[in-house]
């Protein structure tokens, strides 16, 4: 096709769809210390996550015993939401650590 030959410039349409707007979300404030605080270690149910959390809890017990660590397994698979757990953490916790990945 002549329009596509040699050094002739041509115009083509963008094949990409429209990404949605991104709503910026402010991070939660931190208050500088974990002393006396409750931190939830949430197992998202990726394979091996249970063992990893056990080891992380042991690290806190050895190195920061003043932190109260609670291990919880998220309901459902790693694709599912668990609003009940998030509500519990908001009510009783001061931070959350969640493991993601195989």
């Amino acid at each position: 096709m002549a329009a596509e030959s040699g050094n002739t410039k041509m115009t083509v349409l963008n094949p990409r769809g429209t990404p949605p707007l991104i709503q910026r979300v402010p991070m939660a404030p931190r208050n500088g210390s974990l002393d006396g605080k409750t931190i939830y270690l949430v197992d998202a149910r990726f394979p091996g996550g249970d063992l990893f959390h056990t080891e992380l809890k042991r690290w806190f017990e050895r190195n920061m015993p003043q932190v109260n660590i609670i291990i919880r397994e998220k309901k459902g698979s790693y694709f599912n939401d668990d609003p009940e757990l998030w509500a519990e953490i908001k009510e009783k916790g001061h931070g959350m650590v969640i493991t993601i990945g195989h």
């Binding site: 040699g6 050094n7 002739t8 410039k9 041509m10 115009t11 083509v12 349409l13 963008n14 990409r16 769809g17 429209t18 990404p19 707007l21 991104i22 709503q23 910026r24 979300v25 402010p26 991070m27 939660a28 404030p29 931190r30 208050n31 500088g32 210390s33 974990l34 931190i39 931070g95 650590v97």
Partner: peptide, 27 residues
């Protein structure tokens, strides 16, 4: 979990990503 957040961490508002209808002319 403990280090204070900065101004950049607190930003709000909307971010738009451009998706022009046509690409720049080229060979």
């Amino acid at each position: 979990l403990t280090k204070p957040i900065t101004g950049a961490d607190m930003q709000t508002g909307l971010l738009e990503r451009e998706a022009p209808k046509k690409l720049d002319p080229d060979t």
